[in-house]
Each structure stands twice: as C-alpha cells, then as structure tokens.
Simulated scan of single mutants.
Amino acid sequence: MKFIKSLSVAAMAIALITTAVAPASAASTLSGKIVINGSSALLPLTLQAANEFKKLNPKVKISASAAGSVTGPQAVRKGIADIGACDWDASTDVPGFKKFEGQVASKVAVIPFAAVVNSGVKVDNLSTQQLKDIFSGKITNWKDVGGDDATIIVVNRPFGSGTRVNFQQKALEGGTLMDKGNNTKTAAKSGDMKTNIETTPNSIGYIDLVYVAGSKMKALKLNNVSPTEANVINGTYKVWNYGYFMTKGQPTGATKAFIDYIRSTKFQNGSLKKLKFIPLSAIK
C-alpha cells in the first residue's frame, strides 16, 4: 500500500512539473514585424486578429492603419507595408483600377455592404432603380420614395474606397455616383461614414455591416431583401464581396502565419463572426 501511495505521489509530482513547464516549452519563437495598410472596412477584423495573434506570438509586432482599399496594395508595391487590406482582388483588373502586378491575394473574410440612412429617415426599403436615382441625383427628396418631404443628403466615400467600388458595382449595377452638389458629403473612411450618417438628418450612404450594429443609423432592405448573413449565404442578397490581404508574392514568415491565423477555423467561426463578417467557408 505504501508503495502504491508513493507511486501516486510521484505521478502527481511529475504531472505538476510537466504542467508547469509546458507553457514555457510551447512558447512561440515566431518573431518579426508586420505592417498592414488599406481597407477601413476590414480594419475591425484586422485589429481583433492582431490582438489575438500577438498574445500567441509575443515576439511579433503588428501595426495596422486604414486609409482606403487602394492604399493597401499601393503600400505593398512601395514596400512600406507587408499586407495591403483590400475590398477587392487587387491582383486582377476591376472597373477603375488596374491590377497590381506581382501581388498575391489571400481571401480573409466575406464582407456584406448595405445602403444606410439616418435613424430618422422613414424609409426602410428601396428598389435598385430608386437607389440608382438617389445616388445619381435624379431623386433628391425623400417624399419621392415614400418618406418625408425633405432633401436627401448623399454621403459618398472617395474614389479608391473598396466600399465604394463594391456598392457602385453591386448595389447600383455600375451606375453613377454623384460626388458634387449642395446635398452631398464625402466620408474619408468607414468610421467617418458612420459618424456622418448618424449625425446628419435625412442622410443616406453605404457601409459594411460591421459598423451598423448598435448605431444611430439603419441598414435598408434592397428590393425587399434584408442585408443579413443568412441572405448573403442563401444568395438572395447580392451586395457583398470577399476581403483580401494583398502581399508581394506568396506570404512568408510572420506574415504568412498571421494570414493563416485569420483564415483558421477558430478565428473564422469565433471573433470574425462576432464582428458580423461572414466566414469564408459559408460561401459555397
């Protein structure tokens, strides 16, 4: 019996020692610096992933900023960023932008975009044609689409914004965006769009759904279809695109490890979904 007790105590001691040293032996040796620039639509996702990744890899430094999608691949081309966050695949031509030669696009998320209005606007649904007429300047009063008698204030993102590219191509079917006039404003980033719509009565703009929750604006239905995750997945809501991380050639080292982490099942089905992005695996 004493022998059995001695074995038990020894086993417990070994288990405690193993547990104590496991974190040290499992500590990440990955090191390096990752600079990310580009899409403000993807910024909440980038920042969340960076925080989680740095906890697992404390020797890796990550800095992220957002000045619009086109600045991402531009920064990669200039060598001032390792990753260019972009709301379109910048390795291919898209309307208004030539492809960035030598860059590789890695999908990181599905981004739903929506037309949004100030919470005081008494309109909940617009047809594609109504939306096109509003953003081209043909319709200028909310009463013409079922709202109050009030001038519509149109808020746009500047040329080079990935949100603008996607909204123009998918919600407006390539239609015109009115950039000048007494009833127009420009929002440099997604956060600025959120602030403008929330604080400007009778305003309309467009943004990715991440910024809508808990705000003083509302996302509009398009042709009676709500901009929800379920409707993106079932194919009834069409205004969405993949978000990409652009790199100069195939990513390596810490950059590759970070992209792999964002694309991992754990992150895709965890933090990414909580932020109202849609996992890559959900789109078949």
Rank of each mutant, 00 (worst) to 15 (best):
G214H: 05
D87N: 12
T247M: 11
G146K: 13
A13T: 15
G235P: 05
V232R: 06
I139L: 10
W142H: 03
T255M: 06
K221A: 13
T29I: 13
V9E: 12
I62P: 03
N241I: 06
V110R: 05
G160D: 09
P23I: 14
S264D: 00
V60Y: 05
Q250A: 14
G243T: 00
S28Y: 09
N234D: 15
Y206Q: 06
T19W: 08
S215R: 06
N125P: 00
Q268P: 00
N57W: 03
S106Q: 14
N118C: 04
K194E: 13
G249R: 14
A187V: 01
D148W: 08
R157L: 14
N37W: 07
L47Q: 06
S226N: 12
K194W: 08
A257Y: 00
D124W: 01
G38C: 00
I14Q: 07
V232H: 05
I36K: 03
L43F: 14
Q129R: 13
A90W: 07
S264L: 02
F97R: 06
D133K: 09
A20M: 11
Q130K: 10
K284V: 04
K2L: 14
R157S: 11
A22K: 11
V94L: 07
A20C: 11
P251T: 10
T228K: 04
T255I: 10
F245H: 07
T151V: 15
F267T: 01
K5L: 12
A10T: 13
G147R: 03
P112E: 13
L47Y: 00
K218E: 12
L42C: 01
K276P: 05
S106A: 12
Q74N: 11
L42I: 03
K180I: 12
I4T: 15
F267E: 03
A66L: 01
L45S: 01
G214Q: 05
I34R: 06
K98E: 09
T128W: 03
Q268K: 01
N166C: 08
Q169A: 13
L209Q: 09
G79D: 07
